[in-house]
Design a binder for these strands. Structure first.
Lengths: 133, 133
DNA sequence: ATGATAATGATAACGATTATCAATAGTGCT
DNA sequence: AGCACTATTGATAATCGTTATCATTATCAT
């Protein structure tokens, strides 16, 4: 329940972690802040950034870095691929057999130590694809 | 030789494209600017950004978006994986059978239209791995 | 050469994120 | 419970990469 980097338990930390763990839509720091404010109206955006960064460092949540867009935060912590819809901006988990891809790549590149992977697909989600057709 | 978006040929555009096409180290906009200044000491960083963006849009070069780091620019325009070394910061092309991975993913997700993919590995390159051991 | 206007250079503005710092509030001790 | 210590907060300024603005310059069809 406790951890090394965080020395004191505050309602802010608890609420921020709770929001990410109960969100399925990969919210940005700003969105997390809005949701936390439903419960704690005075949280500052700075605190949200600070706590999210700490949680990611502790491995309790995952930061999804997106090109030319604010980072999103994910309750799923293992490496997995994401799809960003260029139509609606949604971020979704996709099953791309990324773990197999990762292990293949690792064995193909034995001299490189791969510690992280960001796999981001961009295009149109089923909804937006239908609209554009 | 000519293109649609660009209406006039300037020495700045020519020099900027030449620098990217002759660079093998995936330079950032700032680095491109420094190199162009060897030849055209008065180019502004704004122009470099503007031209790089246009060249990427025209498909003559590729922008590599990296998490929490300035974009790099690449003479290779097709989708391919990159490796960012957490030790020395270098960005390298790696062969990860990414085209096979892409086509597998496309057929696994027929309802999603995948138009782009950013595949970025992070870890230690052979050099830095050796130092850290 | 000349004129229309695209492109430039200088600089301000921007959005996302991080740093600063005085005020607040957990936590261990009595 | 009260108190002291100090980690954490909220407010705000600062930073970084990038984009926008705009007066000046330079390209190119005529």
């Amino acid at each position: 329940m406790d951890n090394a980097t965080s020395k004191r338990n505050t309602k802010q930390k608890a609420a921020i972690e709770r929001v990410v763990l109960s969100s399925c839509d990969h919210p940005s720091a700003e969105t997390v802040c809005e949701r936390v404010r439903k419960e704690l109206p005075s949280v500052s955006l700075g605190t949200v950034y600070r706590v999210l960064k700490a949680l990611a460092l502790e491995g309790r949540i995952r930061e999804i870095s997106l090109p030319n867009a604010p980072s999103r935060f994910d309750k799923t912590t293992d490496i997995h691929a994401h799809f960003v819809c260029l139509g609606c901006g949604s971020v979704t988990d996709v099953n791309a057999e990324e773990s197999e891809f990762l292990s293949r790549t690792r064995s193909a590149l034995p001299d490189w130590r791969i510690e992280e992977a960001d796999i981001v697909f961009k295009g149109l989600c089923p909804n937006c694809k239908e609209i554009k057709l």
